[in-house]
Design a protein around this nucleic acid. Structure first.
Length: 713
DNA sequence: GACCTGCTGCGGATTG
């Protein structure tokens, strides 16, 4: 503190010191970026290590964050004679060896590297772990609710077991909504005892603007084709890009474009704008399929003070990778969630200034064939609803229903590898009776063990001990085992011997086709399916590549808030003239369709059902109707049903005659149920349960069925 | 109708 010239500590740093130094309590540190969270955790931890020795393990979701964190902590550690070590896939063997010779100080590590060490060096790691004083989790929100988060919970539990103590857990995050949910995720067995240190004082001010756009359909009311639609998208993209060029040139900004396809589209348009204006290119693309050096180039340009630079990104730049100060944030279209909107806002307005956030939201031009979501101006209204929820401090809670059984398989095999041989009852107690993974009873677990046995992954010795089978050895021995999530195979994009990045294998790429990639235009010279590589060379005209995905899940709270926006007469102050017109159009349609009291928009042969429920319940409704032979299409804010409202009502009443189906029964006829990496090893019973828990909300769907029957029955 | 993340140990060549 002295050497940095600090005269006082921030409030969270003062509040966190006592419970962390005490070394018994779990602590959640919730504060915006740059509020000094890292120091709040590590000043007391390093003080403790300097006095008492030992080891602090800090688990972080990104290699880049570990590198940033390492630079920040190195000096702090040196001044107290506490060594800081980073450990991830890019760290040299020599560094890792040096740590293992004397495993003390602060260790910054990824969950996958920790998993690898447990699998490969079980007995050694047991000794190392015994000396842990604190377990820190950086960017805790990034883990909550995912397979990777389940893996982390299991790793923390295994650390407790190995050390024979309750190792205090310290979680850092800027994006936690409900602290009781976060506490339960951090310490499932004793959430009440978690100390929450929250920075209430440093509330960020935000300058907001929502700009509306209308996509002019060049086809003028004729049947829209794929070509016309993309032409319309190009047209609005050009309009938005020219606005971005005018407002952002000459300063540092972040542009969130939601999809990789749009990142490429906007990066290309903005580069062309620079070239036309005969100024240096200062807009760069950034997404997960781009090669690391291209991404680092964009990050370096953003960070450098020498020239202005703006980066068009997907969620890659949401998290705390240090990119310096940016002037403003642009959000193109509806953000995928309130949580990610909050992360994005947090990237601007450091150093006490206010954050600047500009939405650019396109809507379709209406014609006689337009559907309800377009007429309701749902994109504009959803954006407004999400901003309001963000300002109210709400973020999506994790999906508590997820079973993550793929990760159960991984953790079971990993634990057996770590220990060499494990008693089946002990494995049940560690993974299931502890509450980590939810199975109905021990019989279901026994069936899973038999299935893994039949697949050669496990063998059971005569005295009841589980060991790895031949297939299990092979699986666990390969370095791809340690990650809890899976990644699809992709083609490498190569120019002049240099890898630019990757494209999905499924994409129809042929020799001679033109593609935008890395913000530049290319022609494909050669596609080599053997080596999974395509070779490209620079060219002129091209289209952005298509990636695949299933879309973000909209939470029920967002839909309910949208309904309130329709019912309210107020126009938020941050909405521009065009978006105000669009909001008014949406409200007019809402009123004329009498949606304040109707749930269905009537048509002779079809119905549009507006439930205002979350996507999980809506998807469940579609499956329920589909299994009754009714084609139901989920169109975002509504369900398009292929029968008249009267027929729909009859089917709904019929469904309500019997009890709701069991999740398993509803999932059984569905063909592709493998979501997680190791789902292929589950029993068909568990595969159905796992799929149903992840994808269905049966009580929610039943509530909507009842609402419809009550209103029209 | 979307995005993101991670990984070991070994053998052999090269460099200081």
């Amino acid at each position: 503190m002295w050497s940095r010239g600090w005269t006082s500590l921030h409030p969270i740093q003062e509040q966190a010191a006592a419970p962390i130094l005490e070394g018994q309590r779990d602590v959640i540190l919730a504060a915006p970026t740059a509020a000094g969270k890292t120091e709040a955790a590590f000043l007391p931890i390093v003080s403790h290590l300097a006095r008492a020795g030992g080891l602090c393990v800090c688990v972080s979701p990104l290699k880049a964050l570990i590198n940033d964190q390492f630079r920040r902590l190195e000096g702090l550690g040196e001044s107290a004679d506490v060594r800081v070590t980073r450990w991830h896939g890019d760290v040299s063997r020599a560094n890792k060896k040096r740590f293992l010779e004397s495993p003390v100080g602060v260790l910054l590590i990824t969950p996958e590297s920790l998993e690898a060490q447990l699998v490969r060096r079980g007995p050694v790691v047991a000794g190392v772990v015994a000396g842990i004083s604190h377990l820190v989790v950086d960017e805790f929100h990034a883990f909550i609710g995912s397979d990777r988060g389940k893996q982390l919970q299991s790793l923390m539990h295994r650390v407790d077991l190995l050390s024979g103590r309750r190792v205090p857990r310290i979680a850092l995050s800027a994006t936690l909504g409900d602290m009781s949910i976060a506490a339960r995720y951090l310490r499932p067995t004793d959430a009440e005892s978690v100390v929450v240190v929250q920075d209430e004082s440093a509330r960020q001010t935000i300058q907001l603007m929502l700009r509306g756009y209308v996509i002019k359909d060049p086809n003028n009311g004729l049947k829209p084709t794929h070509h016309n639609k993309s032409e319309a998208a190009d047209r609005v993209a050009r309009e938005i890009a020219s606005r971005l060029f005018r407002t952002m040139r000459g300063s540092d900004n972040l542009i969130f474009a939601n999809s990789r396809e749009n990142v490429e589209r906007y990066a290309d348009l903005l580069r062309l704008s620079c070239e036309e204006a005969r100024v240096p290119v200062e807009f760069f693309p950034h997404h997960g399929s781009l090669a690391k050096d291209l991404r680092q180039h964009a990050e370096a340009e953003l960070k450098s003070d020498a020239r202005p630079a703006s980066v068009v990104a997907t969620s890659t730049l949401e998290m705390g990778i240090d990119v310096g100060t940016v002037e403003s944030i642009a959000q193109i279209g509806v953000p995928p969630s309130v949580a990610s909107l909050r992360q994005r806002v947090g990237r601007s307005g450091r150093k006490g200034g206010s954050a600047v956030l500009r939405f650019h939201v396109p809507e379709a031009e209406l014609d006689s064939g337009s559907r309800a979501p377009d007429r309701l101006r749902a994109q504009t209204v959803q954006s407004i609803a999400m901003v309001q929820l963000m300002l109210a401090g709400w973020v999506e809670p994790p999906d508590g229903e997820s079973l993550n059984l793929s990760t159960l398989v991984q953790q079971l095999l990993s634990h057996v590898a770590q220990r060499g041989a494990v008693n089946a009852g002990e494995a049940w107690r560690l993974l299931c009776a502890s509450g980590l993974f939810i199975l109905q009873d021990q019989k279901v677990f026994a069936r899973l063990l038999r299935r893994l046995g039949a697949l050669g992954l496990l063998t059971q010795t005569s005295d009841g001990l589980l060991t790895l089978g031949e297939a299990g050895e092979r699986l666990v021995d390969h370095y791809t085992f340690y990650a809890a999530f899976s990644t699809p195979r992709e083609l490498q994009v190569i120019h002049a011997g240099k890898v630019l990045g990757t494209l999905p294998v499924r994409q129809a790429i042929v020799e001679g086709s033109a593609v935008i990639f890395g913000g530049r235009r290319w022609v494909v010279l050669k596609v080599d399916r053997e080596t999974h590589a395509i070779t490209v060379s620079p060219s002129k005209g091209a289209r952005p590549p298509t990636f695949f995905g299933s879309g973000p899940m909209v939470h029920e709270v967002v839909r309910r808030r949208m309904r309130e926006v329709y019912l309210s007469p107020d126009v938020p102050r941050f909405v521009d003239a065009r978006a105000t017109e669009l909001l008014t159009e949406g409200r007019t349609f809402f009123r004329e369709a009498q949606l304040s009291r109707e749930l269905v928009i009537r048509d002779d042969s079809s119905s549009t059902w507006l439930t205002w429920a979350g996507d999980k319940a809506v998807n469940t409704l579609c499956v329920l109707l589909g299994q009754r032979g009714i084609e139901a299409f989920h169109g975002g804010v509504c369900i398009d049903v292929d029968v008249s409202p009267d027929q729909l009502l009859r089917v709904v009443q019929d469904l309500l005659m019997s009890a709701p189906p069991s999740p398993v029964a509803l999932a059984r006829p569905i063909r592709f149920k493998e979501i997680g990496k190791y789902d292929r090893f589950l029993t068909s019973e568990l595969l159905c349960e796992n799929f149903a828990a992840a994808r269905f909300d049966i009580p929610g769907a039943w509530r909507e069925l009842r609402a419809l029957a009550t209103m029209y029955g």
